[in-house]
Design a protein around this nucleic acid. Sequence first.
DNA 1: GTTCGAAGTAAGCGGACGCTTACTTTTGGG
DNA 2: CCCAAAAGTAAGCGTCCGCTTACTTCGAAC
Lengths: 216, 216
Amino acid sequence: MTSPTPPNSWSGAATPLPQPAAAPARNPAAARPRDSAATRQALVDAGRTLFATVGYDATTVRAIADRAGVNQALLFRYFGNKEGLFAEAVLGEALELLADAPRHDLLERTLAAVLDDEQGHAAEILMAVLRAAGSSQVGEAVRIRLGEAYSAAFASLVDTDDPADAAVRADLLLAWLLGIALNRSVLRAGPLHDPQVITAHVLRVATALLGPRRPS
Amino acid sequence: MTSPTPPNSWSGAATPLPQPAAAPARNPAAARPRDSAATRQALVDAGRTLFATVGYDATTVRAIADRAGVNQALLFRYFGNKEGLFAEAVLGEALELLADAPRHDLLERTLAAVLDDEQGHAAEILMAVLRAAGSSQVGEAVRIRLGEAYSAAFASLVDTDDPADAAVRADLLLAWLLGIALNRSVLRAGPLHDPQVITAHVLRVATALLGPRRPS
DNA sequence: GTTCGAAGTAAGCGGACGCTTACTTTTGGG
DNA sequence: CCCAAAAGTAAGCGTCCGCTTACTTCGAAC
């Protein structure tokens, strides 16, 4: 990659661009041979991490299989195709995660996932969906189902009688969290602000968005 | 494409997925032959539209050349490579657009571009950057420069003495607009709410975000 | 110990992609 | 009129990608 491309001066000092933090390498001690369940899980884990860090298009099935320490043909045996793995790696756990969350701290928890720079489990799923958005029509159904689930959950936080109004405000709050996540972990433009400061601002302003309109 | 893939039941009724609205076909009357400037411009326009509607990765140089009614080798003669065209199609005009905008209605104007479903010029540029975000490291510098410009512009709207605080709040507002754009034009999850209702909510709440903290 | 299906493997097919090359056609200045 | 440079073209090179196929190896039931 000492590429012969013309000297794009504007590419300047290349940012080291996010790399997926060397595979955990599938503990060879605990890894029993010929364990299809473990193989499936290894593929799901590797896939989710790669989708989250470099995006759907840039993630190749060869890379997933390598990271999982598995032959790539097994990916197709177990998941049909690349999109099948994406759906399983992202949708299933995301919905569980959301269903298990109590409503009263939903906003704080989601915000925490969005601001988690260590890339926890929840944050990875979120990023995977986000990064796949730029790609073709991949994961359309995954995005829609997830969007609906989050939208409904946030709508229950809005203090209003009008369901349509609740939907608008819930989607606006959801959009805010998406934007924060996008700006922080994908665009990576500008400095990374202190999560605590961000949280304080968002929680304060969210009150104005969710609460009843002032009778003014 | 009557594909032999396993019956992914969840792919259901395929959404017609955004298509770039048939090329304007380069008025053959006004199109003087052998006009390199016109050819360049045709490539830039075609590229911007395609990048905005289907994303960077999904846009092929062949598609750009076809839509521009131009031989694809010319794309490489004039712009070096695909990324060169992207930079020229997106960065230049975006910065002009921002520089020309008066500060007092910056938020409203940006919001209008974000909510413009007809895909005007400004909206196209914004979408192009957004959709490229999910892709590899393409347009990294483009994104960063554009982000900095917008961030600085919004920071001037914040009512505070602390420059760091202004930066945080400006970036949060910017993130909100990004999220709204993302949710509306890229994710396309959930219903499209009325732009006027959205604008009203955003302007109202933005006051709480930008204004001085209450002395409480 | 034999057998049979499941788990795992090596190799490669067909196609799309970004980009290049070798060529032809037109234009405009002397 | 001439001819070099610019504009435009046709074809294809090398590479990577998603996915398939034909095969080998293992493990457990009988």
